[in-house]
Design a protein around this nucleic acid. Structure first.
Lengths: 151, 151
DNA sequence: TATTGTTATACTCTATAACTATA
DNA sequence: TATAGTTATAGAGTATAACAATA
């Protein structure tokens, strides 16, 4: 049983496993650069929380923990650090008095926008050096990859 | 000055900034999954050190720190944790008695291979669900991205 | 005097276990 | 009894400052 007979026409030496290796290296290196080059003010954990609140609206710490695949005590701490810096506020839920709802503040919103702007700019600068055809390939790949990760 | 006039034919609404945003999200999410799903035994920091020693050969803690863009005291700690687990050994440099050279052990090599195998397998399983054309697009994109990151 | 590596100290993220308040 | 959130405690990664040994 050969890989090429299973998976249709491919470039010589471009077996699916080679593709996985190549993609793995590309993605891990690019993500590392993206994180390092453009998140100065907050950690990645903090940014992830701010981003969730920004895009999905107010949420309980429990939901945030679930969203980020971390345990609730970890989220308690991350939310506390964000609240100390005035980037989020915690409010008692009026219905369920056990619950707390975390809201992003105006400062938090501004920071999310700034980090997004900086990361996009960093990437955009590099994308600008490519040809239009290369950019189109990457655009298609990005869409495919996002769908692939969701599944 | 419009983006589309500068960069040639693109899908409607697929400005270069949209591409950067789309790619940023795809890469950050995929990298997160890759790290979480397939690195159980060692942290990412430890894996990075093992990988450098595996691919580049024995190195001083100073060189390792430089390679990973961390400070030397951080690397001292990471190397110590790897040595405790028998994945690396530290040896005195015969010429410069201030220096130490870190070598990967057979157990360390085996672990690097195992993690690489697991990450590639995780990705390969998901790539298998795509069409041959989609895989080809991703293969081309991976190559372009690797080149882009190096620059 | 400069360099290599380490130790001291501190902050963040992560986890599990145990606790409080509420449902 | 179950759930939401927190506190207690511990391990790992990161940093800066200070130190020892060597060049």
């Amino acid at each position: 049983m050969s890989a090429s007979s299973e998976h249709g026409p491919q470039r010589p030496g471009e077996r699916r496993q080679d593709l996985a290796t190549n993609l793995r290296i590309a993605v891990l290196r690019l993500s590392r650069r993206l994180r390092n080059e453009s998140t100065l003010e907050v950690s990645e954990a903090q940014h992830s929380v701010l981003s969730a609140l920004f895009h999905l609206g107010p949420m309980t710490p429990g939901k945030l923990a679930e969203h980020d695949h971390v345990q609730r005590p970890s989220m308690t701490r991350t939310v506390a650090s964000l609240e100390e810096r005035g980037l989020v506020v915690r409010r008692q839920d009026s219905d369920d008095k056990r619950s707390v709802v975390v809201h992003i503040t105006d400062d938090g919103r501004a920071l999310v926008k700034e980090i997004k702007r900086r990361r996009t700019a960093w990437l955009d600068k590099r994308l600008a050096r490519l040809t239009a055809a290369e950019r189109q390939t990457i655009a298609q790949a990005a869409t495919i990859l996002r769908r692939m990760v969701e599944q």
